[in-house]
Design a protein around this nucleic acid. Sequence first.
DNA 1: GTCAGTGCAAACCTTTTGCACAGGT
DNA 2: ACCTGTGCAAAAGGTTTGCACTGAC
Lengths: 137, 137
Amino acid sequence: MKQKGLKTTSQRDDIARTFFASSKHLSIDDLYREVRDINPGVGYATVYRTMKLLKDCEFAEEQHFADGHTRYENADVEEHHDHILCDDCGKIVEFADESIERLQEEIAERLGFVLSHHRMELYGVCEPCRTKKQEEA
Amino acid sequence: MKQKGLKTTSQRDDIARTFFASSKHLSIDDLYREVRDINPGVGYATVYRTMKLLKDCEFAEEQHFADGHTRYENADVEEHHDHILCDDCGKIVEFADESIERLQEEIAERLGFVLSHHRMELYGVCEPCRTKKQEEA
DNA sequence: GTCAGTGCAAACCTTTTGCACAGGT
DNA sequence: ACCTGTGCAAAAGGTTTGCACTGAC
């Protein structure tokens, strides 16, 4: 799986296993804590280093949302998508929309750019959080 | 102009004046250096504090692009717009597109979110940079 | 004369790195 | 045995804060 010139160490195994097994959009800190439960000897630096490796091997994708914590998501088979985040509970939902992608290309072209990538994040309040707020009022 | 319960100090004057006079999307560091040329006694912390004030008063908007430096842009009369950045030269171009905005609302609604704000940044290579590259080849 | 604003340096927070040691190959 | 990978702690890089002092009101 990761025979790209890298060594298989117990730390890397545990980090990768935890990462792939867990729900998406883990921060380094989330990951560090989860790995620690399994293998208490793992250091913070190794989590950073391993995730960078996984990113380089395109097994993980790095996300920088507005909370200032780098998060990683499984890049497995997934196609491109964007994210919408709840301002209240922090929930992250993925979505893909053909029309938006096409529009972005058009805009770039109109401005003379050849697009390499983009970042699109929507922020708002999700339905459950709105309901909860109303009940409190 | 900034009589919102704040004091008018020479530092704030100089920072605000520099900010409003200069081209857009200044980083704290850009601003700090430009202000220093006028008023060498100004400290880094004051630039941060003043920009935060201008942001709170909605005279400036904070942008966090991919380069890791917080940038501010004049929020004066401007309407909402997004940005496209050149991977090569770092140029930042603004654009506004009704259709994209509408689509974002639609997507949010479809997913049960009430949108508060969003971030959309396109990255690519601008025409001049592409030409330059071709000439080099 | 007060008290908000300032400069400095230290603190913070996330991420990276140097180094001696450990463990895959 | 070699040499990559690891843990720790220190460094880095951007931003914030505590504190005594300055200056606007």
